[in-house]
Amino acid sequence: MFEIFSYSFMPRAFLVGNLVAVALGMVLGVYPVYLAIIVSVLAAIGVEKLRVDYKDYAELSLAVILSSALGLMTVLVSLSRSNSSIFSYLFGSISLVTPEDLWVIFPISIFIVGGVLVFYYGFFYLSFNEEEAHMAGIPVKLLNNFFMVMVAITISFSMRIVGGLLVASMLILLVATALRIAKSFRDTIIYSIILGIFSVNSGLFISFYVDLASGGTIILSNIIIFILVVLYQFLRDKIRTKRFHYLTSFRR
């Protein structure tokens, strides 16, 4: 959707940034989520800066951030003696969520929802056509940076439940499904939110009763919804063309 998102490994850059923070937190013995927010916000601004500098080779900028973060992470993980808890950040675990997290998530979610509302049509124009938005006097640079920061923060928090490796797919799958059914920008956002709430809850519910990893189950329920939507649309189109052929056959 966003031009900055048209490179599919964008969220991966954030995620590796996050994992660096987690590893760093483990080495320093600091609460990793705060560090994750700081590091991924820095990574986000770095990616955005490089993206503008490299304009026509934007993928390059991501590769630069991605590889440097990966290198850093590997070194940091090997430095910290116990690498068992990195697993829970990679694959997510609901038991990791502390009351402290909830108190941070609450104001931050208000910040993010508020941010989207305050700049709603700015974001719309930006995702439709960045160049035109710039010409129409929309603060493109500010909005791009703000958006990157919001994504970075969202990823840092979702990582606790869904896991670092899967959080990017969650962000993308929801929108991919919503894009198939929505006819407007507003509907795309609303459908993604509804689908998100539904899949996270059903995923958690199933993972608890069947004793599966929470992150994986959430993503799988996302995928099931996506497949159902694709299947439904495929069958609907088939039936439509059949009916069309049936109706037109009378004319001959």
């Binding site: 959707m1 719309f124 439709f128 056509n129 938005a133 894009l179 407007s184 920008f185 507003r186």
Partner: peptide, 18 residues
């Protein structure tokens, strides 16, 4: 522009009144 972009006519025009 991207033909499959989910924007209605109204949204597109509204964005110009930022």
């Amino acid at each position: 522009f991207n033909d499959s972009f989910p924007a209605t006519v109204k949204e597109l025009i509204a964005s110009n009144m930022y």
